[in-house]
């Protein structure tokens, strides 16, 4: 067995450079399920969850830079919960308290599951991910990092270092549908964030597309129906908005849900998120 506990990002870089087949272990809550269920038989592992700079977050101008090993619990309960509320809302829905105590934001991205609950929030917020290797750093968008179902553009010698999340002043919403009231894998989720300064609404969908996906047509469509001063939306726009959100999905049928339900649900979530942020206005 070969096991390394990295103490710095430089050490991770050199360990990966030395042997890129070494696997990264962050919180371990996905990694170990694969090991326990025999989908992974690790032979060389680098644990990165004790690297101090990866466990911290800081204000960085108009954004927060969140180290990849910051846990869901810290995002759910700490000061970040007021800075990026939708991220905290999504963190609260992930797994059990035990899992949230140890699972990390970087792990959620690295696993790249379509049901990864933080992914739609980060995508809607236009978060950028700093990818690090011995050759230096590069910044990518969420949808450039995650390219498909459990597929990323990470090279073997790269790891996720920091997630830079813009701080928006407007209301944010994350809604997730699962058959259980807690500790459930999402069958459809939706993040909506607003930027009153730019007067933009961003919407991203979870569990209804293979790779992270924005509902851009719905975003553009609704622009014309919003009153940013009164924070209202024309009620006449709702049916088409809901339809456009639903149409942005391309879900699959599986043992968790039918595609038809997922499409339906994500449309409902879109409308509900919108109406939590913007009051419905009857234009007569």
């Amino acid at each position: 067995m070969e096991f390394h506990i990295a103490s710095s990002t430089e050490e991770i870089c050199s360990l990966l450079a030395e042997d890129p087949t070494r696997e990264i272990l962050a919180g371990g809550t996905d990694f170990m399920v694969e090991v326990n269920f025999r989908q992974k038989d690790p032979s060389a592992v680098i644990a990165i969850d004790r690297v101090p700079e990866l466990k911290q977050w800081r204000h960085d101008g108009d954004a927060v830079s969140i180290g990849s090993c910051v846990t869901y619990r810290e995002i759910e309960r700490g000061p970040l919960s007021t800075i990026v509320p939708a991220l905290a809302q999504s963190a609260r829905t992930v797994g059990s308290p035990q899992i949230r105590n140890i699972a990390t934001i970087g792990g959620n991205l690295g696993t790249a599951s379509p049901a990864g609950d933080m992914i739609p929030v980060l995508l809607a917020l236009d978060a950028r991910v700093t990818i690090r290797s011995i050759n230096g750093s590069r910044d990518v968008a969420i949808d450039d990092l995650i390219t498909g179902v459990k597929e990323t553009s990470l090279a073997d010698n790269e790891f996720i270092e920091v997630i830079k999340v813009p701080i928006l002043k407007g209301p944010q919403e994350f809604l997730k549908v699962g058959p259980r009231n807690a500790m459930v894998i999402s069958i459809a989720s939706l993040a909506m964030v607003t930027d009153p300064e730019q007067t933009t609404v961003a919407i991203a969908l979870g569990s209804v597309t293979a790779a992270p996906s924005r509902a851009r047509e719905a975003e553009e469509y609704i622009q014309g129906f919003l009153d940013w001063d009164a924070m209202t939306v024309s009620s006449s726009a709702l049916p088409d908005f809901r339809r456009l959100v639903a149409e942005a999905s391309s879900p699959i049928n599986d043992h968790r849900s039918s595609a038809a339900y997922r499409t339906h649900a994500v449309g409902v979530l879109g409308q509900r998120a919108l109406l939590r942020i913007f009051e419905s206005r009857d234009d007569g």
Partner: peptide
Amino acid sequence: EQGECGSCSVLMDGVLVCSCLVLAANAT
């Protein structure tokens, strides 16, 4: 063995975790 049941809960550095999801070598 997938962190769903909590039957294996322990405290690690004072933090509640599922011990089935901790690689033993990384608990050193």
